[in-house]
Amino acid sequence: MFFLNVLTSGLLSGLMYALVAIGFVLIYKASGVFNFAQGSMVLFAALTFVVLNEHGLPFWAAFPITVLVMIVGAVLIERLVLRPLVNRSPNTLFMATLGLSFVIEGLAQALFGSDVHQLDLGIDDMPLDLWGLQISTFDIFASAVAVVLVAVLAVLFSKTRMGISLRAVADDTLAAQSIGIRLPRIWQIVWSVSGLVALVAGLLWGARQGVQFSLSLVVLKAMPVLIIGGFSSIPGAIVGGLLVGATENLADIYIGPLVQGSVSTWFAYILAVAFLLIRPSGLFGETTIARV
């Protein structure tokens, strides 16, 4: 039963990782760029929400205002950072997001300070005994949120005109532009949706550890998830998250004592490297075929 408890809690933690990873996937799908600023966006969104909340705004008011702030941020990022770099190489765009992450982190600290904020979403974080398994209600809630988010995004990408446009842009930016798809609008939308995902991830992580600067470091957990699941697949992010969460929990318990230290941080990366060797595009990622 102890093994099952460790496995289950690992799987549930993995869903929390997946929430962060989904933000990366969205932007990668739309532009082929690894958005290094996703962690900073998680921090900025959660800080905005919690500060509004502390100033007396209830959840139902603070949430849409924060979403609005993230949309404005997405439009500004598109206008000031991405638009001048249209048709540049993915490496250039990646470097731009690297710089962007420092700007967002600095802005977040300048506007909201460096304090640790308590965030109470009103969901109990106490264990429930389900057939001998100790599962927190908060974990169940976070899992449900992740599942709903994935379902909504899956519909968005496969059934809507916007989703199909987005996939066209990801496949071939120039070809998509030539048939009338407006690249700036697509980027604004996808960065906005990514901002919304960052807010959801920030709230769930913030409720657990407090809203503070280290939220931006959660991205380190998303890296192996993305490598394993594939950079362009939302279901891949979920499966990758589950794999990473479960294996790192089990590794800490069963391998950690053998090496007399914690192993979870690097164990997830070992797993990721193994995947890179066997399946470089990840479990669900699209295999890139390039003419050389």
Binding site: F2, V6, G10, R208, Q209, S214, L250, I253, S262, T265
Partner: peptide
């Protein structure tokens, strides 16, 4: 029982303490 930096996940460690 060690916890890896920065320590934002400790479920396994506390379950070990409990066990």
């Amino acid at each position: 029982i060690p916890v890896p930096h920065p320590g934002e996940q400790q479920q396994a460690q506390w379950q070990q303490i409990k066990q």
